[in-house]
């Protein structure tokens, strides 16, 4: 049975009517027209669907929408835009860290959560933070460089 569900997404309050057991991913993509979180496996194993729930990277593919409750959902659309990009977005483009790009939404979520905790992550911390994210095209090294670049941008921003 469909139910009315209220969500806080990218800073806005949204209300949808849907199956409360539907995965958050399906609601974001089909009800709210937010296409950045992507379907990859549906089993919490590839990271394509990651979103932030109160700042914590969360697989939206298997997360029932009714369980979100009061938590704040942030998707890549909420991280930044072409006009006002998040440092990780700028850095991914500057490093040309992408081939097909399908993995990049989830990667941004993992990276943004890491950068919110520390702006001087070690190589190993970056790799560990990106462990949930699969990339088949093999842009891993560029992504790692992009996270380092974004960290440097944030450090400079803080120093300025």
């Amino acid at each position: 049975m469909d139910a009315a569900i209220r969500l806080k997404v990218n800073g806005a309050l949204r209300e949808v009517s849907c199956d409360p057991d539907a995965p958050l991913l399906a609601v974001l993509r089909n009800e709210l027209d937010l296409k950045a979180a992507r379907f990859g496996c549906g089993h919490e194993r590839c990271g394509a669907c990651l979103v932030l729930l109160d700042g914590v990277p969360t697989y939206s593919c298997a997360f029932p929408v009714s369980a979100v409750r009061e938590r704040e959902v942030v998707t890549v659309e909420g991280l930044g835009t072409e006009a006002a990009p998040h440092p990780i977005q700028t850095a991914l483009l500057e490093e040309q860290a992408g081939q097909c790009g399908y993995c990049l939404s989830g990667i941004q979520i993992s990276a943004a959560a890491l950068l919110a905790k520390t702006t001087s992550p070690s190589r190993d911390e970056i790799k560990a933070a990106l462990e949930p994210n699969l990339c088949r095209c093999g842009v891993h090294l560029r992504v790692i460089h992009a996270v380092e670049r974004a960290a440097a941008m944030l450090r400079q921003g803080a120093a300025a």
């Binding site: 993509r29 027209d33 937010l34 296409k35 950045a36 992507r38 379907f39 998707t75 890549v76 659309e77 930044g80 835009t81 072409e82 990009p85 977005q89 991914l92 483009l93 040309q96 992408g98 097909c100 790009g101 399908y102 990049l104 939404s105 941004q108």
Partner: peptide
Amino acid sequence: EQRIDLPVKVFGGGFIHDMV
């Protein structure tokens, strides 16, 4: 040259999966 198709994908779009 920077890849022309990358920005839209970084900002969350660009795939057949998104077509409605």
